[in-house]
């Protein structure tokens, strides 16, 4: 039994890592300019070749962003699912991404109309404010409504309200801003710079490490609040940390790539069914890897399916993520009969 689980874990991690490497190479290769593997390796290691600029300035930052932000989204979803002990919680479904989007749009329009450039950290801060705002509403709902579905409906409604206000604000913005905002508010990994990558690394990686270090209290919390407290978890501090981390992660994603749907819900479930465990010590790194793989795959499709045009990343993640949510709900229904 023990042995069996170990094999499964190793197999899981190795296949995820393999998928990640393949998708990275494929992403470098795919696009309007096709490159051979030999060329790619040449470009990566010597920065030479005629297409080095395309790879180094456009494709690589985009790939790393998709990797980091995908991982962040999945992790944020895992944290929210733990917090609400609700299997279909996620930053998009609960309206947290939309809240971040709203405050971000307001900030962008406010700054740009005065002709001030906006730094990455300002964007993240604005997104974090918005995310916390939505989170506050969702928490208020969760205090009143114990039912799983009510929480989700509440979150979806908050999401709609925030999106409506965002649309309203965008309508009155300058023409020049609209194009940018509209593109961004649909969600996309395009146009990432190395500076962006640096900032998101500085946010996502520490958050990942913090989450990993929280594995122990998370495992206690999975048994329920009463038992967690008896095991010596300081529930107040723990809950605040959980909320902060999931807000920071989803805010960072929204700040750079806009709202991206379903990754946060779907990936933790896929990971749970692959690894057949809910242990946070496994789940945290596996979710991060899984989110990276999922987003790289979806971004690949977004870039290539209707090339040279691009799909919004959310429309691709929804196609693969939404069925997972439906499956999860159906399976739970069956278990509870």
């Amino acid at each position: 039994m023990e042995r069996h689980t170990h094999i499964r874990l190793w197999a899981g991690f190795i296949s995820l890592a393999a998928a990640l490497i393949i998708l990275i190479l494929w992403n470098i290769n795919a696009g309007s300019v096709h490159l051979s593997v030999k060329e790619i390796i040449g470009i990566l290691f010597s920065r030479t070749g005629e297409n080095a600029a395309i790879v180094w300035n456009i494709r690589l930052p985009r790939i790393i962003s998709a990797l980091l932000l995908g991982g962040a989204l999945a992790l944020s979803g895992f944290l929210l699912q733990t917090f609400f002990s609700n299997p279909i919680a996620g930053p998009f479904i609960l309206g947290i991404s939309s809240g971040a989007k709203l405050v971000l749009s307001l900030t962008l329009i406010g700054f740009l109309s005065r002709g001030i450039a906006v730094g990455s950290f300002t964007l993240i801060l604005a997104a974090f404010l918005g995310a916390s705002m939505s989170m506050g509403f969702v928490l208020a709902i969760s205090l009143k409504a114990k039912q799983m579905s009510l929480l989700i409906i509440g979150g979806v409604m908050i999401g709609y309200i925030c999106s409506a206000i965002t649309d309203f604000v965008v309508t009155f913005a300058d023409d020049a801003n609209i194009v940018n905002l509209h593109h961004w508010s649909l969600g996309s990994f395009s146009g990432m710079s190395w500076e962006n990558v640096g900032v998101m690394t500085a946010v996502v990686i520490p958050a990942l490490i913090c989450t990993f270090l929280l594995s122990k209290p998370i495992s206690a919390y999975q048994l329920g609040e009463v038992y967690a407290r008896n095991m010596g978890v300081n529930i107040r501090v723990f809950r605040i940390l959980l909320i902060l981390l999931s807000s920071v992660l989803s805010a960072c994603v929204t700040a750079f790539a806009g709202p991206i749907s379903f990754v946060g819900v779907a990936v933790p479930h896929l990971i749970r069914s692959i690894f057949k465990t809910a242990k946070p010590l496994i789940m945290v790194p596996a979710c991060f890897l899984g989110g990276a793989v999922f987003c790289l795959f979806c971004d690949l499709l977004a870039r290539t399916v209707v090339s040279p045009a691009e799909l919004s990343i959310s429309s691709v993640t929804a196609v693969f993520g939404a069925p997972v949510v439906i499956l999860v709900m159906l399976r739970r229904q069956k278990e509870h009969v």
Binding site: S219, Q222, L223, Y227, M231, R272, T277, K279
Partner: peptide
């Protein structure tokens, strides 16, 4: 009712050792 998704009985009993384990549990 405790939620113990994907946990074996032994895993659930093992949570009792929580106060005695290190940083990562």
């Amino acid at each position: 009712r405790i939620r113990a998704e994907l946990m074996s009985c032994r895993d659930v009993v093992a949570t009792g050792r929580y106060p005695y384990t290190g940083r990562l549990g």
